[in-house]
Write a protein that binds this DNA or RNA. Structure first.
Lengths: 331, 331
DNA sequence: CACACATATGGTACCGGTACCAAAAGGCGC
DNA sequence: GCGCCTTTTGGTACCGGTACCATATGTGTG
């Protein structure tokens, strides 16, 4: 099944079939009809692989995220997929499982598919990879974090550090002084929030009561148990900043089991503003990032670039919003 | 940058370069080294598009899911992606947004990429699509639901109906008699659970107190509000079967706000056993489906098929497990 | 040492589209 | 009717790999 077969049946040249598919207006309506009928009759589905090779336009974008298990990233992917599909692109995805090594290998693999753009989560640290990306000459969009020194081409995201600082301002503003911090171990992107946490405390001449890095995989560091352990060891703690809403949810449940009032005994704040955070009891103070919009904007940049435009802004800061809810009501 | 360039630099024929990449053992070690050095020096990345066209093996699998927003499906995708990558395949994804129309269009688009297999969520209803899939002659794996009449080729999943029946047996066994049902509107896959709900009640000569289909998008049918409305209108209700854990979580929070004891005033059961369900207070009775495993097995079938094997079983029922927790403790 | 045979490498055509240019057909003014 | 320009269609080569077969080189045996 090929253009040639269709062309034969319709009594035209292969090239005309190609035109019917790609630039229908350039074919006389009656010819077009004849070709369309032949396509229909044969159940012909154009081979995009051949098309990609010949036209040097793959209409493929590949995206790498740390994990699809985290709803934050799947939101981004959804924003990407929706917008790209509307522009006739397809999305190849890879999950790096938070590993820089897997990420590097994946980037090279992906480049083999000759995508027109590649979407990466966070910074590009390896020089080898940066070089390969530049040599490929394709659009590179880095999403999520906006770390100045590490941007290869374009970036769409928000300032992780500033967001965490804003949350600390909120907590300190509410009068909390004995603060703890929790983040999933290995989450590179939480690191900056931890730095912000420390520095904000230092500015007020305060010290963390604890900084815990529980694991989702190692049962010895189960987030719930770890939270309880830390609070019991540091009972003076009056608020905990969790680097992700999921952790904060677990902390709320742990408090319920223990009979610790939230807020009252302990205030809790999260990051990411998952849908559940507005509904949970008590509702969770969090930092809202418009994930879907990050994906949508990234796709937009890609489509614009493909259309030959140089987008005005190479770095788009979509900002964040502190959503104040019950879990951090004044003590 | 092409095999020819590399071949020239290494002083061999293009074909030898191809062999170094695909079947290294068929090349004398010293020749191989020379070629590898040339590849390294030029930063050559083989063009998989050309390779696909020429070899008629795209090493691409495409997967369609209703949404990536639902952690259940992203788990499946992750299982797929991990296993496929280990076998040197790439994954193209599409989300159908629960729309049969989008799904059909996507299937055709995807076929254009000449994937070696396509993964679909649930049944194939349109005859046109079924035909196109058969004509493409590729492996079709339907995941999730195992509906007998709708399987094109292979299927990996569980029996939705049986799972819901088992949950009803559990609820009735615990003595609950005045049952309500909730599912997100438009969720095709919840439909069977609803049927099971009704039939199980009918067998006990019972009638549902209510069946509600809230929406995640239409604020007039916000799941939380809808749940409260239904309970207030049908105060005799002593248990609610939610077609997804997410709904059950929202219901728990609604009960907390209203001061309704769970269990006690109302028992709640979910579906899917999200990680949070074990942690929430009260912990949620649910039906566990091993999502990741569904993805893994689907990938396994695909890889086996590609290797020329006909897998023993075309339909793999991975089963389910009723996880009894606090939310349905006896009244 | 000739022969059969395995191993290593090369040459050529082809996968199924499309870019590019040439040619034919149609439209219009004078 | 002729020339000129636009629109429509066709022919050919090529994208960058690999299948297939031919050829060259090495290996063991009687």
């Amino acid at each position: 099944m090929s253009v040639r077969k269709v062309a034969e049946l319709a009594g035209v040249a292969p090239m005309t079939v190609s035109r019917v598919i790609n630039t229908p207006t350039k074919v006389r309506p009656e010819t077009r009809e004849r070709v369309l009928k032949a396509i229909e009759r044969l159940g012909y589905v154009p081979d995009l692989v051949a098309s990609s090779l010949s036209s040097k336009r793959s209409r493929i974008v590949s995206a790498l995220v740390p994990t699809l298990g985290n709803p934050m990233f799947s939101q981004v992917i959804q924003g990407l997929a929706d917008t790209l599909r509307a522009a006739d692109y397809h999305l190849i995805i890879g999950d790096t499982r938070y590993s820089a090594k897997i990420e590097s290998a994946l980037v090279l693999e992906m480049l083999g598919r000759r995508p027109e753009a590649i979407v990466l989560t966070g910074p590009v640290r390896e020089e080898r990879i940066r070089k390969a990306l530049l040599r490929a000459g394709i659009t590179v969009v880095q999403i999520w974090d906006l770390q100045p020194g590490h941007i290869v081409d374009c970036a769409v995201g928000f300032d992780n550090y500033a967001a965490a600082v804003a949350m600390m301002r909120h907590l300190l503003g509410r009068g909390y002084r004995r603060l703890g911090f929790m983040a999933i171990v290995g989450d590179e992107r939480a690191r900056e929030r931890q730095v912000a946490f420390r520095e904000a405390l230092a500015q007020h001449k305060l010290k963390p009561t604890f900084e815990a890095l529980p694991s989702r995989f190692d049962p010895a560091y189960d987030p719930t148990d770890e939270f309880i352990r830390q609070i019991e060891q540091h009972p003076e703690t009056d608020a905990v900043f969790c680097a992700s809403d999921m952790l904060a949810h677990l902390a709320i449940f742990a408090c319920q089991r223990k009979g610790w009032a939230v807020p009252g005994r302990i205030a809790l704040a999260g990051f990411g503003d998952l849908p559940l955070s507005a509904k949970i009891v008590p509702s969770l103070t969090s930092i809202r990032i418009n994930q879907y919009e990050i994906g949508r904007r990234a796709a937009e940049v890609i489509v614009q670039r493909a259309g030959g435009l140089r987008p005005r802004t190479l770095v788009q800061d979509l900002g964040y919003e502190i959503v104040e809810r019950e879990s951090t009501a004044p003590p």
